[in-house]
Write a protein that binds this DNA or RNA. Structure first.
Lengths: 212, 212
DNA sequence: TAGATTGTTAATCGATTAACAATC
DNA sequence: TAGATTGTTAATCGATTAACAATC
């Protein structure tokens, strides 16, 4: 309906705005300008105004943005104003780290099931959830109305998990395994690949002898 | 010397190429075309050729790229052909997950020290390393010639850690805490913020009633 | 009113893609 | 030679930034 065609870059900045706005609210700041936001987030103020203007007129000329109001708006845009159940596959270190991250809770993203196909891990308790075998994935996804899946298994198994998610009717996937996964085009997939971030970091380190 | 000015987007794709090339090599594939690469990695072949051409002529017309040769070249570009010591601060779940990730080892990125300022964690062993108190950061960074720092502490403490890294002479930082950190301009910082990825995911999920 | 700041249009900048001569 | 594929130039596309009228 009101989806003109928003670029991915814009959508990815919204959570960043949201996070900082929440911080402002916690500090009882009532109003914020694109200037302020830009300074704190290292972004151009015009860009911030433009990003927000894609979705409506949220600010007031001469004044700025009402913090609480803007939070509400961004949450609605990102569909964080409703509960969104999440399944996680891979109860290793990273999986545990994520499930303990209760930060999502206040944004209504909730990990409600954890799966692993390593027998020794099945039945273990992670963050109050019993690790389930992969054989229960499809039924659990359906019963618990899970719409988002997180993959934290080793690279070699990631495609299989993605396939299982797809078969179970998952609508969006966040993949932490260092592989590019193929999924049906109706499924949204984001690659959260920090090995890429880390490996690209060294490029920017100065040589001993050289100056750039 | 041979630094014309490469865009960040290009540098971030290099580790992706590298990873897949390593996979090809493991499967004893000798040669690969930009066509093949593009298909596997969901990228435009012209883009891949252009990315690589920034750094030299690595391919052969009519044939493609020699897998082993290209691996060597990319590793050299990313400075992964030498050992790069890494310090990690924050021995929580995520910190542990990262230090167990031995994937870096073959790329010569090595976590050689782990720090935390929570007393109960100091002295614990994580992946064969004893967790050290923050008070030892500066001296350890110097003695062990650590050049890269990873931050896996809660958001509220991340800026402090970044400041300590800066004071200790760290040259690049990978930050997992969900905050934008301010560091001196000579320090390279990457934000590996998966909460952003996760929160932006819901945006793309279809409404029940709507079609896009 | 004077100062501040939005929403938006226009200008700029940069990145991606297409196309093709060169050549293996 | 014919087919394949690079390296690179030119064309396109899209995103960022500047500028400013509108207005609180």
């Amino acid at each position: 309906m009101k989806t003109p065609k928003i670029s991915e870059a814009v959508v990815r900045r919204l959570p960043v705005y949201l996070r900082f706005l929440n911080e402002l609210k916690a500090n009882e700041v009532l109003t914020v300008s694109s200037q302020d936001l830009g300074q704190k987030l290292d972004l151009n103020p015009a860009q911030i105004r433009k990003d927000l203007a894609h979705f409506g007129e949220f600010g007031r000329k001469g004044i700025g943005y009402d913090v609480s109001y803007l939070i509400e708006k961004i949450r609605a845009i990102l569909k964080l104003d409703r509960v969104m159940n999440v399944a996680l596959v891979g109860a290793g270190n990273l999986g545990r780290a994520l499930s303990n991250y209760n930060a999502y809770l206040k944004d209504n993203m909730k990990i409600v099931a954890i799966f692993d196909n390593v027998p020794s891990k099945v039945g273990e308790t992670v963050n109050n959830l019993q690790v389930q075998p992969m054989s229960e994935l499809a039924s659990t996804v359906k019963n618990r109305e899970i719409r988002i899946g997180i993959i934290t298994v080793p690279a070699a198994e990631a495609q299989n998990v993605a396939d299982s998610f797809a078969a179970a009717g998952i609508e969006a996937i966040l993949n932490f395994a260092p592989v590019i996964l193929k999924v049906p085009s109706h499924i949204r997939i984001h690659h959260a690949d920090f090995t890429t971030d880390l490996l690209s970091l060294a490029y920017y380190i100065e040589e001993e002898e050289e100056h750039e």
